[in-house]
Every structure is written in C-alpha cells, then in structure tokens.
C-alpha cells in the first residue's frame, strides 16, 4: 500500500507540485491515462482555490480501499475565510473573482465523491474520492 502524501499549499508552484504528486500516486494505484488527467485537474482546482482564497493550506493525498476497489482520497484543507454560501459556490459559473467559476462544480463532476465543509471565518475542507475503474 502506498503512503499518504501531504503537500503544503502556499503558492502557484505548490499547485504544480500537488498536481504532479497526485498524478504519480494515482498512477501507482492503477488509474489509467484519462483518469490521471482527471485527478490531476481536480487537485489543481482545489489547490488553486486554497492559494486564491485562503493564501495557504494543505493537501493530503491518501490511498483508500473499499472491498476490492482501490482509490485515491484528496483532502484540501485551509483555515481561510470560508465559503458563506456553499450551494452558490457549487453552481457553474458562480465566481467572486474574474475566474470561470468552474473550479468546485467542475471538480465535483470529475471525481466520484465530493464533499465540502466550510465555516465562515474558520476555513474550508474539500474531500474528494476517485475509484479505479475495474
């Protein structure tokens, strides 16, 4: 079993590192080419949200297993300003900046499971899972 990987997210460079590490770990877990891109992209989106809105935070990549399924869990955590309205944040095209507003809803579509917990003034935790397709 591969080990958990933790990456401090403070800058654009860290997003790149997170994406690369995610891709490497996912590849070891047996994900195929297009899923690797999917995972790397979802990691990129949540890591970028950390840099953009919280300034700093942490990303944890953990191999997971359920009966015979192998998978990868991505947890992005920050102690940033939090999201006042999660429903709104998960809507396509909603953005408080000049971005496309697709980061969170896009990641949700890319991954198999997606949960987000956020409290204003306390921070945000996004947990995503993807299973290797058997």
């Amino acid at each position: 079993m591969e080990n958990e990987v933790r990456i401090a997210i403070n800058s654009d460079q860290d997003i790149v590192i997170a994406r690369q590490q995610g891709r490497t770990l996912a590849s070891k877990l047996g994900f195929n080419g297009s899923d690797l891109t999917v995972i790397a992209t979802a990691i990129s989106e949540v890591a970028r949200n950390i840099v953009e809105f919280a300034g700093k935070g942490e990303l944890a990549l953990t191999p997971i297993q359920q009966s015979h399924k192998q998978g990868l869990m991505v947890v992005a955590h920050d102690d940033g300003p939090g999201i006042p309205n999660i429903q709104l944040a998960l809507q396509d095209g909603f953005s408080t900046t000049a971005s496309l507003g697709l980061g969170l809803p896009g990641s949700r579509r890319l991954m198999d499971e997606f949960t987000i917990v956020s409290a204003v003034g306390k921070g945000t935790t996004v947990t995503m899972r993807k299973w290797v397709r058997g």
Binding site: G33, S34, T37, V38, L100
Partner: peptide
C-alpha cells in the same frame, strides 16, 4: 489531447 478534451468538457469549460 483526448484526456484534456474530456476533462475540460467535464469541468464545463
């Protein structure tokens, strides 16, 4: 690439 095309469509770009 095919992977990027698929991913972008899924995200909704």
């Amino acid at each position: 690439s095919a992977e990027i095309a698929q991913t972008l469509v899924t995200i909704g770009v």
